[in-house]
Design a protein around this nucleic acid. Structure first.
Lengths: 342, 342
DNA sequence: CTGAAAGCGCTTACAG
DNA sequence: CTGAAAGCGCTTACAG
């Protein structure tokens, strides 16, 4: 493998100074068209690619974006959200010559340290902020670190006003509840995600509001960590109630829990959807193939990733970016919901 | 946010030259112990962290490792392997101050381009090579690019002799087949992954060999792309056979397909495991909670990630690394397998 | 429109 | 054991 060509090689080949090569390559004004063409051609012939390290050092820019995922490995493995989100992000970054630096951590301390390290090492020019929390301290931390960020969803108390890419969870849950009520259900439970997560809170709130709009109150709400295990446990708890007070439908805050709930219900001799209707959230690929196939609220993690990447790139390149509101996701009705047996 | 301290600041504070600071920080010999202590303390007081960009430029090292995932977004979202693998990788890298650069692509051309870009830009010091293929051209490409790599599994024709981290799939499949035969099954099918992938080939081969060891031949083998959708389709095909030739058990090459198959079978009125026994592969979290709970071959993606990261770090730091053989994964027997009805 | 030079923040021979 | 200096490969004012 021969030495990689540098800007000097290009300059010599084109018969100009390296400063001018830099100008030409970066499309700056003030280079005569023919000179520019000569330079570009020389660079092309040499297969020249500027050294990221050298550019980074000069410009204090890393040409990379960061994502810190703070979830239990078990939960993240079961949840199709992040892989889809990341593939959307990648589609945009690859086209723009940016890299994605990924960090996976399991607790808040490690998470803060991951952001600090990314900032102090100059690894990234900005980060995606996911799984927003109540009283989230990360916007504050990122502001201190001087690290631009885009949030997935809006931070209510965010005085730093980070650009947000929003896909409203509410309609999906609202539709699910309306759908169930329309089928005749009156005792409906919610298996919620961790209340510290804003989107889990919002789904829960949407659940309560949707019931209230029909003059109903939640039968029960059980909080989990989003894992299939706790989804299964919550389901067992709900189904252990005496038949006359037992819920006839369960709205789960994600698909893995709904699928686990589906298994547990059948394990306990319930027939779905006759004895119990269930709905999921995120409409993962597998939802279509479980039995009965799962009614689920659709989100578009990949599209979300693309928009988030575009927004963050705008922010780091131009210093500002405007919020993006994605079209709210709807409910995909399948076989896991039906009128209650009564 | 004040300017980040540089090595010059540390040198001034410690009253030495910046060269000496560099020596002290990098633990090189030839620095008097007390001088070293003074320097370290100064660095500590200043909260100094060396600029990665500057180090990279000097040392031609990026202090980052790369992973290119080439799978259909739908497949990757359903498959818990990569998230678990990545979290294992991260655990090791974070402790060593290395970053992970991730790229997600959907076709071979984009994949090659991703490696080229990582190499040309000097983004990474080495890469993980996953989803090995028959006649894999990537070892050759990486050799040309001068990019060190570690493979997950062994490349049979690999003349470049890349270090391999191996977890043998064979025992899991062999045990599954033996388990089914022990239960009395004789007509057993395999729903395989894409034959271009070595691990899919190996599972298939293990399946055939295990049957042959008992004097049996595969009832049927259907190839898929590893997606839940094709797993479902393959299952429909198998179950459409007339009852007297229909298989009584199916060995799936991954869990998402087994779970989809479970759904399809029930959809078609089959009772599991009485009418049909099924086994999965990878033992994902959800396997424990579907109904009936899924018998599956365990792998340890997170542990695999840790070993792969250690090995790749050894390789890039010392120029060589030895192969690692992980203890083969066993079969986790659950409720989806039982004696055939007859 | 073009060139020469300084600078980004490190590492690393080379002297002493 | 320590210092002074060159060099990594770019970008960017500053002259002309």
């Amino acid at each position: 493998m021969e030495r990689k060509p540098t800007i000097i090689d290009v300059a010599q080949r084109a018969g100009v100074s390296k400063g001018l090569v830099s100008f030409a390559l970066n499309g700056r004004p003030g280079v005569a068209p023919e000179t520019r063409d000569r330079i570009l051609q020389a660079a092309d012939e040499l297969g020249f690619r500027p050294s990221i390290a050298a550019r980074s050092l000069s410009t204090r820019t890393s040409y990379a974006l960061g994502l810190v995922v703070a979830r239990d490995p078990e939960v993240i493995a079961a949840d199709p959200f992040f892989p889809s989100f990341i593939s959307g992000v990648e589609r945009v970054l690859a086209a723009r010559g940016r890299a994605l630096v990924l960090s996976v951590v399991t607790d808040d301390a490690a998470e803060a340290e991951a952001y600090r390290a990314m900032a102090a090492d100059g690894r990234v020019d900005g980060v995606f902020l996911t799984d927003l929390r109540a009283d989230d301290e990360r916007p504050q931390l990122l502001a201190e670190l001087g690290l631009p960020a885009v949030t997935l969803g809006r931070v209510p108390s965010d005085r730093s006003r980070l650009p947000a890419v929003v896909l409203d969870d509410t309609p999906g849950i609202t539709e699910a509840v309306r759908h169930l009520i329309g089928l005749g259900h009156r005792r409906i439970a919610h298996v919620a995600g961790p209340s510290r997560l804003l989107h889990a809170q919002r789904r829960r709130q949407a659940f309560e509001d949707a019931l209230a709009a029909h003059g109903l109150a939640p039968a029960r709400i059980l909080e989990t960590d989003f894992s299939a295990r706790e989804g299964a446990n919550a389901t067992s708890t709900l189904l252990a109630d005496p038949a006359d007070e037992r819920v006839t439908a369960i709205v789960y805050a994600n698909d893995p829990m709904a699928i686990a709930g589906l298994g547990v219900a059948q394990q306990n001799g319930f027939r779905l959807p006759d004895d119990l209707s269930i709905t999921g959230f995120d409409d993962s690929e597998i939802a279509d193939y479980v039995y009965p196939s799962l009614t689920s609220a659709r989100t578009r993690p990949s599209q979300w990733g693309q928009e988030a990447a575009r927004t963050l790139l705008d922010l780091v390149e131009h210093g500002s970016a405007s919020d993006v509101d994605l079209p709210p996701a709807g409910l995909v009705v399948r076989a896991s919901t039906a009128p209650p047996r009564s």
